[in-house]
């Protein structure tokens, strides 16, 4: 085929393109993913006891702020990363700052506590459930984010997949935080932060395959 023929074909009956499709697709993906993860949480654990009375203690608020901050930063990175070219670095810096702040707070909490209390702080309530449920709740958001990203044209697939995994993991963790009683700051660092990073790792591996175009 001659290139001129191809250009002629592509230009025939050209449709106008509206802006904002990618952003909308990502927002829909986040909403659908969050809804699916919440339904799964309710199906497994039922309505969280706290939701009725409201015992929002410090660590629980911290967990929600950390995870929702990650969702926000990661989603704004994905909006840029779904397009060909270099996305802005600001969201990645924000993600690093969030992790750094949380890890520092966890370190301080450990230093202030008596070493005898450490294992109780780290292996707090339901640490295993945390490690299982956060990736489990992240599956639906990850699938919906990949669906949205495939509408775009990401050019660094591994990095885009990693951040999609991170956002999905953070959403799963936020949903889990509604159910979870809280625990200590080191607990959140290890089991929330760790599970989210695990999701990012899986996302990076899957992204390089699923996002090809």
């Amino acid at each position: 085929m001659k290139t001129d023929e191809l250009i002629n074909m592509l230009g025939t009956n050209l449709e106008a393109v509206k802006g904002g499709e990618l952003r909308n697709a990502l927002m829909v993906a986040l909403a659908v993913g969050a809804a699916a993860a919440s339904c799964l949480m309710l199906a497994i654990f039922g309505l969280p006891a706290d939701a009725r009375g409201g015992d929002y203690s410090g660590p629980k608020i911290l967990a929600l702020a950390f995870t929702l901050g990650l969702v926000f930063a990661g989603a704004s990175f994905l909006i840029g990363s779904a397009r060909p070219g270099e996305p802005g670095r600001k969201p990645l810096i924000l993600i690093s700052v969030l992790f750094f702040a949380l890890i520092s707070a966890g370190g301080v909490a450990l230093v202030l506590a008596h070493p005898a209390a450490w294992s109780g702080m780290i292996f707090g309530p339901q640490w295993a459930a945390c490690l299982i449920c956060i990736p489990l709740f992240a599956v639906a958001p990850f699938a919906s984010l990949i669906w949205a990203l495939r509408k775009g044209a990401p050019t660094s697939l591994t990095r885009t997949g990693a951040i999609a995994g991170l956002v999905a993991g953070a959403l799963g963790a936020a949903v889990f935080a509604f159910h979870h009683p809280g625990g200590s700051i080191p607990f959140i660092v290890l089991w929330y932060g760790g599970s989210i990073l695990l999701c990012a790792l899986v996302g990076a591996i899957l992204g390089s395959r699923l996002l090809r175009w």
Partner: peptide
């Protein structure tokens, strides 16, 4: 060239 032109066209919303 042609693969890129098709990509430029079908992905122009990006």
């Amino acid at each position: 060239v042609q693969e890129s032109l098709i990509a430029l066209h079908t992905r122009r919303h990006t």
